[in-house]
Nucleic acid binder design. Structure first.
Lengths: 217, 217
DNA sequence: CCTTACACGTGACTC
DNA sequence: TGAGTCACGTGTAAG
């Protein structure tokens, strides 16, 4: 549509900038009175066109080079920018309010937004590890037993942790007890020698999760 | 500065819109040939001024009502918006990286990146629900029993789902069996009447998660 | 008086 | 030829 490159070469801005290069008063003409206005007018128009040209430059997707269309496109673009910015700012606000799990919240429309006290508590709740055992059961099987205190998202984090390890999990069981405890039991297919390595791995991962490093803006 | 309210009342747009109310051809004038151009021109100017007026309307903080200044202000404003948006988008990107899943991934250097087939598989793996029962156990307790097929992240999603519901969970148990099944059992403190509502809620949430709606850019 | 900023009509040009 | 857009010079009102 609108064959760029050929079409526009006659257009005003192009031909305008070619011709419009100072023009002043070649002779010692009177230049007084009325005739001084016309050069003034020329400059006014020149400036106005420059500005319009500049406006066109900052607006992407300009279709018609029409003066009026340029302004219209600029208006639409400004509105679009304003909307985007408003939307994104809202998003940021929301994210800042409830740190990590905003994503989940936004993927589930109604249900979540209805009763939203603060399950996803903003103060990042690291996993508090109470006990960690890795026991070889023979038969290429390790029994991993984890006990930690129940905080918001503890279970989710545990799941993610182990899913990310890419282990050969035979069975996994997570139980949240009525009290404050979360028990996690996994049977993993792995050599007995990996016992200590795996334990280290888990400890390191949990420690990293609880790490209060990343900048608090 | 610039005494608003008095100053601008003589300005072009104001007086322009007062006078400019159709003007057409009062008599059966020839209106042919050249004279038809002048009305065309009038309309062109009119439209152009309208657009300029509209442009001024979407730009806050316009100081001088100058035509050229309006455009200039619009340009500056657009640039400002673009910068703001770019900045905020960067901020959002950064925040999204701090989300739980990504966090685990990025904060745990070696361990995860080493064996990272695609546990967090990009192709959203919806939860495939095989069975859902909500049974009143008396004593203000509901037993929720879920069976679904084991896919990547299924457990994580289930956890997030229930954490987000803000239910009074007495005990929760998730078990991944050696086969392809994931069993989820919860004891929830709730009135018997909420049975069907809760079931619906769970079904809806799972459906929403699996929904292939949101745009695939 | 001079300057600024505008709307107008007109001829030129393109599609 | 006819509709659309443009730059130009001019008259004019306000500061």
């Amino acid at each position: 549509m609108e064959n760029h490159g050929d079409e526009y070469k006659h257009y005003w801005e192009t031909q305008y900038f070619l011709e419009n290069q100072e023009y002043g008063s070649p002779d010692g003409a009177p230049s007084s009175a009325a005739s001084r206005n016309i050069v003034s007018e020329r400059n006014r128009r020149k400036q106005l066109n420059q500005r319009l040209f500049a406006l066109r430059a900052v607006v992407p997707n300009i279709s018609k080079m029409d003066k009026a269309s340029i302004i219209k496109d600029a208006i639409d673009y400004i509105k679009q920018l304003q909307e985007q910015l408003a939307g994104i700012q809202a998003e940021v606000m929301e994210m800042e309010n409830n740190n990590p799990e905003t994503k989940v919240r936004q993927q589930l429309p109604l249900l979540l937004r209805s009763h939203n006290t603060n399950i996803f508590n903003p103060t990042s709740s690291p996993i508090q590890l109470l006990q960690l055992k890795v026991t070889p059961m023979g038969d290429n099987t390790l029994l991993v037993s984890i006990t930690c205190s129940k905080r918001a998202d503890t279970i989710v984090k545990l799941c993610q942790l182990f899913e990310s390890f890419n282990l050969k999990i035979i069975t996994a069981n997570i139980t949240a007890l009525p009290g404050t405890l979360v028990l996690n039991t996994l049977f993993i297919e792995a050599d007995e020698k990996e016992k200590d390595g795996l334990k280290m791995q888990i400890e390191t991962a949990i420690a990293a999760l609880s790490d209060p490093q990343s900048r608090m803006s």
